[in-house]
Amino acid sequence: MPYDCVVLVKQVPDTSLVTGNAMNDDGTVNRAALPAIFNPEDLNALELALEIRDEYGGRVTVITMGLPKACDILRDSLYRGADRAILVTDRRCAASDTLATSYILSCAVKKLGKYDIVLCGRQAIDGDTAQVGPQAAEKLGLAQITYVEELVELGKGSITVRRSIGSGWEKVKGKLPVLLTVMDTANEPRPAGARRMMQFKKAKSVAEFGKEGATEEQLAELKAKGLLIEQWDLDDLEADLQWCGRDGSPTKVHRIQSVVLTASGHKKVEPTEEGIRGMVHELIEDHTIG
């Protein structure tokens, strides 16, 4: 039996490379200063969806909410095997916290109509909140299984997975439809396929044409070749604006302090044998070590 999988994917700044001042004065992230990547655990979510499709049939749809630039990870998803990619982009999405984000994403999933399994990464590396998955599940009225490490069984309207419980694991069974959040230990994401890369290299969304926009012919051509990345705004989603963007976000950033670790005037110890022996002596004297 085929399954329709929806994967929510996010483009994130590569926080492992953060250097210098990556923040704007108003406390927002200076995204331009950092390379943007596919959130690592979202690749594991995508891989799990692709494995399900390859085994049982069905379709894999990826959705991202973000700036037009986020089409990079949609193309990447197509290279790896996704069947359909959707960009949700709208100025009014700006400043959304996890609650508003999950609301907007849930509207997009609802607009798809039919789906069996919604997959998210466990968490995004920019904030490490792991909130959007469970919040989207609640908004869609779905059961959720977080911290998924392995698909055990799928069939007869239910799914069985192994999930991490921190120190240990459990096997749980749930009815479909369901939302899963997937851990990096679940699988090894497949690389982009060379043929699919050739095929989808030129895939593009309307927003990527910039201010001038695309001409009718350009759009018609992309569409004819199956290379037009679908694009939805909040009107397409029939989203209630009071739950979107800044208005829809109960949490507000009050203050941003840059981190200045106060140089507490530590004692400099020479890296020599004597220097180190001296320090050990002091630590024994003050009973820090015995």
């Binding site: 700044p13 926080t15 953060v18 210098g20 001042n21 990556a22 923040m23 406390g27 992230v29 920019d126 904030g127 949490t251 507000k252 950033v253 009050h254 203050r255 941003i256 302090q257 840059s258 981190v259």
Partner: peptide, 9 residues
């Protein structure tokens, strides 16, 4: 954010 800041929410 990468540890450059402490945010108060």
């Amino acid at each position: 954010f990468g540890g450059n800041i402490i945010a108060t929410i």
